[in-house]
Simulated assay, not measured.
Amino acid sequence: MEKALWYLLVGTRGGKNRVRIIRSIDERPRNANQLAEAIDVDYNTVRHHLEMLVEHNVLEKGGEGYGAMYFLTDQFEHNRETFENVTEHMEET
């Protein structure tokens, strides 16, 4: 998970938006449209980031279609400290 977080948040464009998505879902589960509104990012951009976060087991999708909700995975929860360390590093650079 540590390598995936470094890649997703620091190694690629869009890391800051992915952090915003993770923090928003940490507040409460949301669907893609709710996330787009919450972080003020285009819906299609949010969908792209969600796909990346699901692919790397940071988020899991509950349900199908437009209303599918996104949740933090147990694996992410076990690595929350790593997430905080990576985001601290992002703020320093």
Rank of each mutant, 00 (worst) to 15 (best):
M1E: 09
K3Y: 10
L5I: 07
L5F: 03
W6S: 05
W6N: 10
W6I: 10
L9I: 11
L9R: 00
V10W: 09
V10Q: 13
G11P: 01
G14T: 06
N17T: 08
R18P: 00
I21Y: 05
I22V: 11
I22P: 00
I22C: 00
I22G: 06
I22Q: 02
S24F: 07
S24G: 09
I25F: 03
I25T: 00
R30F: 00
R30P: 04
A32K: 02
A32M: 02
A32V: 04
N33H: 13
Q34Y: 07
Q34L: 07
L35A: 05
L35T: 04
A36R: 01
E37Y: 07
A38D: 02
I39C: 05
D42Q: 10
D42N: 12
Y43C: 09
T45Q: 09
V46S: 05
V46Q: 00
R47T: 08
H48Y: 13
H48I: 07
H48M: 12
H48K: 12
H49W: 08
H49F: 14
L50I: 05
M52R: 13
L53E: 02
V54P: 06
H56M: 08
H56C: 00
N57K: 12
N57I: 06
V58L: 00
V58P: 00
E60T: 11
E60I: 00
K61H: 05
G62I: 13
G63A: 13
G63P: 04
G65C: 05
G67L: 07
G67H: 10
A68W: 07
M69T: 01
M69N: 05
F71H: 11
F71W: 12
L72A: 07
T73D: 10
D74C: 11
D74S: 15
Q75F: 02
F76G: 01
E77M: 13
N79M: 02
R80L: 13
R80A: 11
R80K: 14
E81F: 09
E84N: 10
E84R: 11
V86E: 02
V86F: 04
V86P: 05
V86D: 08
T87A: 07
T87R: 06
E88N: 14
E88C: 06
H89K: 14
H89N: 14
M90V: 11
E91A: 15
E91D: 15
E91S: 12
T93Y: 15
